[in-house]
Amino acid sequence: MTRRIPLPRTLLAVCLLGAALAAPARQASPDTGYLAAEALPDGVALVPPPPAPGSAEEARDQAHMQAALALRDRPRFAQARPDADLDFPQAAALFECALGVPVDAQRTPATLRLLQRSLVDAARSTRGAKQKYQRPRPFLANGAPTCTPEEEASLRDSGSYPSGHAAIGWAWALTLAAAAPERGDALLARGREFGDSRVVCNVHWRSDVEQGQALGTATFLRLLAEPAFRADLEAATTELAARRRNAR
């Protein structure tokens, strides 16, 4: 039986959409990650080839996509659009509901830095496999629109497998759960939902998301060996705890 993509809780959807609408103008995010090129996970070695045409795995991807397409006029599809935007400062709000406190440059600079720099590392972890496999994105196969029509032209020539967004979202979920373990369940659930948004948006197959999340995990494990990352993680743990105390 194909797992149906769940609709978000109403409060979470409202929080996410409200944060997106209230976000200030975009600003450039740092383009330097924590990891040197040689320290990045080897996506080509870690990720198996995408499902072969006619395989059971490919049929699973197709069935999961059909369930996602049925959400087009539902709140879940509306949520997928802000989940697609990784530009800061908007992106800092994507996990705020699960984290329980806002993230900004003034009061949680280390947390913001973790998100910005780990984004670079997680995205880079998927590039080798994307370039090797060049899997077409689902909207090219099913002809249905995506949640980001303005990006469709550029996505046509961008490999679908594995998902860079899913790698980033899962690396973020693991990082924030390490900094705020008492919010771990909510953050991991949000990371899974963030990956599901790529299927709902009609820009990734389910297996793209799963392998992207695998590379997000591999990236996080590599990051734990980096002193600069560990220092920011410790600082984020302290500043997030302080924000929660002050909010009581």
Rank of each mutant, 00 (worst) to 15 (best):
residue 148 T to K: 13
residue 148 T to G: 07
residue 148 T to C: 14
residue 148 T to E: 12
residue 148 T to Y: 11
residue 148 T to H: 13
residue 149 P to D: 10
residue 149 P to L: 09
residue 149 P to N: 08
residue 149 P to I: 12
residue 150 E to M: 09
residue 150 E to G: 10
residue 150 E to T: 12
residue 151 E to P: 00
residue 152 E to G: 05
residue 152 E to Q: 13
residue 152 E to F: 06
residue 152 E to P: 07
residue 152 E to M: 08
residue 153 A to E: 12
residue 153 A to W: 08
residue 153 A to Y: 10
residue 153 A to I: 10
residue 153 A to G: 12
residue 154 S to Y: 12
residue 154 S to L: 11
residue 155 L to S: 00
residue 155 L to K: 02
residue 155 L to M: 02
residue 155 L to V: 00
residue 156 R to M: 02
residue 157 D to R: 03
residue 157 D to Y: 05
residue 157 D to C: 01
residue 157 D to M: 04
residue 157 D to I: 07
residue 158 S to P: 01
residue 158 S to I: 06
residue 159 G to P: 00
residue 159 G to M: 03
residue 159 G to A: 05
residue 159 G to E: 01
residue 159 G to C: 00
residue 159 G to Q: 05
residue 160 S to Q: 00
residue 160 S to C: 03
residue 160 S to E: 01
residue 161 Y to S: 09
residue 161 Y to V: 04
residue 162 P to A: 10
residue 162 P to Q: 07
residue 162 P to M: 03
residue 162 P to I: 04
residue 163 S to C: 03
residue 163 S to Q: 00
residue 164 G to R: 12
residue 164 G to V: 09
residue 164 G to F: 13
residue 165 H to W: 13
residue 166 A to G: 07
residue 166 A to M: 08
residue 166 A to S: 15
residue 167 A to G: 03
residue 167 A to K: 02
residue 167 A to F: 05
residue 167 A to M: 06
residue 168 I to P: 01
residue 168 I to T: 09
residue 168 I to H: 04
residue 169 G to Y: 11
residue 169 G to E: 10
residue 169 G to N: 13
residue 170 W to H: 09
residue 170 W to P: 01
residue 170 W to E: 03
residue 171 A to F: 14
residue 171 A to C: 15
residue 171 A to Y: 15
residue 172 W to Q: 05
residue 172 W to D: 08
residue 172 W to E: 06
residue 173 A to H: 15
residue 173 A to K: 14
residue 173 A to P: 15
residue 173 A to E: 15
residue 174 L to E: 11
residue 174 L to M: 12
residue 174 L to R: 05
residue 175 T to C: 08
residue 175 T to Y: 04
residue 175 T to E: 09
residue 175 T to F: 07
residue 175 T to Q: 09
residue 176 L to S: 08
residue 177 A to W: 01
residue 177 A to G: 03
residue 177 A to F: 05
residue 177 A to V: 02
residue 178 A to M: 03
residue 178 A to P: 01
residue 178 A to L: 02
residue 178 A to S: 07
residue 179 A to K: 00
residue 179 A to Y: 02
residue 179 A to T: 02
residue 179 A to E: 01
residue 179 A to I: 06
residue 180 A to R: 00
residue 181 P to T: 13
residue 181 P to R: 10
residue 181 P to G: 14
residue 182 E to H: 06
residue 183 R to E: 08
residue 183 R to Q: 14
residue 183 R to S: 10
residue 184 G to H: 11
residue 184 G to R: 14
residue 184 G to T: 03
residue 187 L to Q: 07
residue 187 L to Y: 11
residue 188 L to G: 00
residue 188 L to F: 08
residue 188 L to S: 01
residue 188 L to D: 01
residue 188 L to C: 01
residue 188 L to Q: 03
residue 189 A to F: 06
residue 189 A to S: 11
residue 189 A to M: 11
residue 189 A to G: 12
residue 189 A to H: 10
residue 190 R to T: 02
residue 190 R to F: 06
residue 190 R to L: 04
residue 191 G to K: 00
residue 191 G to F: 00
residue 192 R to N: 05
residue 192 R to H: 07
residue 193 E to Y: 15
residue 193 E to W: 11
residue 193 E to S: 12
residue 193 E to Q: 13
residue 193 E to G: 11
